[in-house]
Design a protein around this nucleic acid. Structure first.
Lengths: 326, 326
DNA sequence: ATGAAAGCGCTAACAG
DNA sequence: CTGTTAGCGCTTTCAT
């Protein structure tokens, strides 16, 4: 099955056109500050095209000392339509700058991120939540030039905004005691905590008591117990960490012979199809994740060029979608 | 944010130990057929460790003519727990052979797969469904040594097995007229067709009429129309392409004031959490996707070594999980 | 405006 | 058993 065919090299192109490899390199990378006659330029491009020339990435990386690979680290927790579209937005924005995005899905038996970073010689390593100092250091050690976001980037603002939107919607509907449904999963905790904080801020701003936090696993029993807990506390509406968790709450209600929104209103995050199709359809917070992807891309680009970058929540990226679960 | 620190090279390690780079290369790759004294070996390893040496992947790829990168192409359609765990199984099995898996998520504005392949200098490119001849060719052109699966690999058997399991379950429960719910999405079609074929085979084997195929989009209205269609045809049970589609059917039933399993039994594929938590909980077909991942890994490894590989459905990888929607 | 030449860090014959 | 010697394909000063 393996193919042998000798690669077409830049020397082949140079020879075909009758110029030096240097010239070929200059036009192919359209290096600024060089003045190559349009005619030469055209002929080089044409020959490259005709011969099916592809720059050899490893050689280029070796010589130039940097690759055009950007690595995005994901874990199974972070999945669904939102992430898909963040990735699309990011990939598109990076592609426009000639950078290539690849993904690493962390998990069971998977390689450590720094190893992957080194293996693909990534120039930048990205995540959907801040890397702690130790991880960043390991990533730099592995050859990354840029690691994003770090703990000093206030990506957390994004998450707080989500919580705030959920709670404000509920408060506007007249709910006076809010609950929060968190999954009992370590990986989700950093994000869950920020979202919860946002909920808390909205409650405080409205003069309400802090949210009643309960853990709900992705099964009906666990959710049913939480439902009982909230009702006992006089909670009439709950913000869920995600649509998945929210659907679990819905299942918990069903198990108790109750239903949203009358017995307990519930709002999720993500706008995933199965939640939109739940009984009842779930109110949720959606991201303009393409925009978020583009923003991340901008930050990477700036950092890669050694400029200062900014990464801050923009409320316009979020949108509460009311449906019948509230 | 950018780091400068000169890389530690194999020459540094060699110098530290007082041997040549060759020796270092040999012990680090523990090259077979070389007899390096345990003592030397140990000292090299120790020095490498101490200096924090990491082989430079591009240099290695350039010199050796091949990388240890395997690229898996995914598109947004294929997502969820199953894929996650295929990826984990695959990554783990590859890691054991010192290969690194990275993902490419195709979609809107994303780079063409061959470009990504070239950018990471992948030795092998994998997909979850067969690549057509043109794509394979482009991938080889882009430098891949192995492309898997191709149209000659009977990966389709896996999908037919899924459909067969769904239908047999329904038939065993006494259903005499089966429906099939397919999403109206081009990307899903190849797989949907195979699964449907499996359903058809089970029906034929039981002496039943072929399944009544209806398209259902991921929204209640569309599903409600399909539900009406099936009931009119005397269909009492439907196999859905996926859990997502199955949840839509459930929503369609709800919209009509009907419910599974009495008015229409429904079975999905994937075993995703939100479907398990649906009303009613969804019967589904789950994969042992870790196993599938390992199998794919074996095939890659064999192909990479130029050996013949086999890729065939193993019924033990699938399991029907009965719940109350049937 | 273009070319010559010197590497980037590593592997792999081939000697010794 | 280990070292010497060539490159792998590309970028990039520095001359011309």
């Amino acid at each position: 099955m393996a193919k042998a065919a000798r690669r077409v090299t830049s020397a082949d192109v140079a020879r075909a056109v009758g110029v030096s490899r240097t010239t070929v390199s200059f036009v192919l990378n359209d290096r600024p500050g060089q003045s190559i006659p349009e005619e030469t330029r055209r002929r080089v491009l044409e020959a490259a095209q005709r011969l099916g020339y592809r720059p050899h990435a490893p050689a280029r990386a070796l010589a130039a000392g940097r690759s055009d690979i950007v690595l995005l680290s994901l874990h199974s927790m972070t999945q669904g339509p939102t992430v898909t579209s963040v990735v699309e937005g990011l990939a598109a924005a990076l592609a426009a700058r000639r950078l290539t995005l690849v993904l690493h899905l962390g998990g069971e038996g998977t390689r450590p991120l720094p190893d992957v970073c080194a293996a693909v010689a990534a120039s930048a390593v990205l995540g959907l939540e801040p890397f702690d100092a130790a991880t960043s250091a390991a990533l730099y050690e592995a050859g990354a030039d840029v690691v994003l976001p770090t703990e000093t980037d206030s990506l957390a603002d994004y998450q707080r905004e989500v919580g705030r939107l959920q709670a404000e919607h509920l408060i506007a509907r007249g709910h006076g005691r809010i609950g929060y449904a968190t999954p009992g999963i370590a990986l989700a905790e950093p994000i869950a905590n920020e979202r919860l904080r946002g909920v808390g801020q909205a409650c405080a701003a409205a003069g309400l008591a802090p949210p009643v936090v309960l853990t709900v696993d992705l099964e009906a029993d666990s959710a049913a117990r939480a439902v009982a807990g909230w009702r006992q506390e006089g909670v009439s509406a709950v913000c869920a960490y995600s649509d998945e968790v929210a659907v679990a709450v819905l299942a918990g209600l069903r198990e108790r012979g109750l239903a949203a929104p009358d017995d307990l209103a519930v709002v999720g995050v993500e706008d995933m199809p199965t939640a939109r199709l739940a009984g009842p359809p779930l109110t949720t917070v959606a991201f303009d994740s393409h925009a978020l992807g583009r923003e991340l891309a901008d930050a990477v680009l700036e950092a890669l060029e050694g400029r200062r970058y900014g990464l801050a929540a923009d409320a316009r990226h979020f949108r509460l979608i009311p449906r019948s679960s509230t």
